[in-house]
Every structure is written in C-alpha cells, then in structure tokens.
Nucleic acid binder design. Structure first.
Lengths: 150, 150
DNA sequence: TAATTCCCCATGATATTCCATGACATCCCG
DNA sequence: CGGGATGTCATGGAATATCATGGGGAATTA
C-alpha cells in the first residue's frame, strides 16, 4: 500500500491545539507498525521531526550497542528519547502537538506536513519551510543524486 | 511483457482533473511492482516526471547513505519526497493530477504522456512538449548515441 | 474545581468507486 | 476474404466513501 511519506499538506491547528495528520501519512504509519510514531525536536532546522516506530527501533538497537553511561550514549538517549514524544492519532486521525514542539517550530494555527521518505516526515511553520527552501535553492549547491544511469 | 515506457499518448483531463494513464504504461507499472508510482516536479523542464517504485527505492537507498540533517540530504529529500506524490491508478486506470503539478506543467484539459524508458515517463502540456523538441532540433546538436554497428 | 485530554457526532468538500457509452482493435468463423 | 462478435480502452456521469474541521461533552488530571 502507501509506502512513503511524500508530498506536503497544510492543515489547520484548531483552538484546542488539534491537527489532522494527513490521511496518506496515517496510511504509512498504520502500514509499518501499530500506528505509533514519535515527534522529535529538530534543533538544526527549528522544526519537528516525525519518526516511524521502525526507525526508532533501529535507533534503539544502535544505542543499545553503546556502553552504558558513556557520554555518547547519554547524548543519543537525550536526543532521541528525552527530546521525543510518543504519539498516536485519535479516532479522527488527529493529534495534539506538544507545546514545547510548537514553540520550537513557531507553529500557531497552521502546520505544514512535509514528506521525507520511508521513515520520516516533518511538521513546519509554513513560511519557515518555504523560506528555508528558498535559501537552499539559491545556494547553488549541485544535486548530488543526479547521475548517468537510470 | 511490456518492459519500458515508450511512445506518446495524448489524453483528456476531465472537469474533475482525472486522466487515464495509457494502458501500456499501466502494464509497465503493474509489471515492476505494486502499481504504485510517483509524480515529481520537474523544475528544469516545467513538466511532470513519473517515476517507478523501483526507481524511488534506489533514490531512497542513496539518500539513506547521506548524513542526517546535512544540507545535501535535505535538498534531496525535498526534491524527491516533498515535491513528489505517491500515486496509484483507480479501477478504471485513471489518476487525478495534483493541482500544484498541473500548474507547474501548465496543463489544463489535455495531458501528453511521453515514454522515457525503463523507469521514467513524463506528463506534458502538449504544445510545451512540441515547442521544446523543436527548440532542441534546431540547436544542431549531434546525436551522441548514433553509431555504425548494431 | 478548573483545565486538559479524549471520544463521539455533524458537516461540507473532496476523492473514490461504480456503471454506462462509444471508438477502436482483435478475433473467429463462415 | 469479409463481417459480425468480442474485448479493450478512454471518457463521462452519478452514487458512495473519505477527509479535514468544528463543536459538545464525558473522562482524566492537576
């Protein structure tokens, strides 16, 4: 069925703080797991990362391989667990965005859901996202994925 | 079996935005996967790229190899995931073209499907396509694939 | 109690499915 | 070789389902 987070969807955040998770995203989440997913602080871009359960399982495995009490492990745990929230949609497909994440991403009454492939999506303040893309577009960075075959 | 997207097909876009995907293209899509495919913004040519699931799987693998949160990765994800839409034909072999893509390609009531080989096709505004080809034909560029044997 | 979260229902808009038609190609049998 | 039957395909419309959104109210928590 639906296998990737693609496209973008602009949804309203209502007075109670509820947002609909785009139906195609819900399909992906339901398809690869129990429908549980994680919202994580993205400090680099000032936005919210949505991660699938499968992705977090993989992160967990890699953290488990690090020595207990090592600074590397503490850092990873704080980033992926302390700074994340486990989420699941309500019966109408909505979630309530945690306040701390809304502040980080500067979200008020609109939320832009952005597909990021197999295991990730993001939730942006719409204008922040478009500004960020415009910046990157003008940077003149070559597209490293273009290649000869296919 | 049919293994490549070839030839061109001019189909109608009805009032609801529906277009028939040419039957031979559907055969290719069904043959190499679940029938899912992707429509992607082609900013370079002002048209729509259709990509097979296999092609996107390959793109995904190469993106997964890039460091998370790097500008290169963000660029690639935005281009291939945020600016693409996962599609599948309805029971009659039709899709509805996303509005943003119709605007990009300047498509209104006609869509020209253009075969591009094993893993790609395009959807053009018919006149834009023919104009583009005429331009290139008059540029006098030699065809680098022509050779003596075979 | 006050505030918050969760669940249920309602609604308009949009998308999806289902069915009908006509054009065209293919097939089959006389 | 011809011509009718059959099937596929693109297209159109109507019926049906889904989705995002809003509000009421019960349950939960502080």
């Amino acid at each position: 069925m639906m296998s990737r987070f693609t496209s973008t969807y602009l949804n309203k955040v209502d007075r109670k703080g509820r947002v609909s998770v785009p139906a195609p995203f819900r399909t992906v989440l339901d398809g690869q797991g129990s429908g549980v997913f994680y919202l994580k602080r993205n400090e680099v871009d000032g936005t919210i990362d949505g991660l699938t359960e499968a992705y977090m399982d993989d992160v967990q495995d890699r953290i488990d391989a690090l020595p207990m009490n090592s600074p590397e492990r503490e850092d990873a745990e704080d980033e992926f667990f302390a700074d994340s929230t486990e989420m699941r949609c309500d019966p109408d497909g909505r979630i309530i965005l945690p306040k701390a994440l809304m502040e980080l991403a500067n979200i008020d009454d609109q939320a832009l859901f952005v597909g990021k492939g197999k295991s990730r999506f993001q939730i942006w303040h719409p204008e922040t996202y478009h500004a960020r893309r415009a910046e990157r577009a003008s940077s003149g960075r070559p597209n490293i994925l273009h290649r000869a075959n296919n």
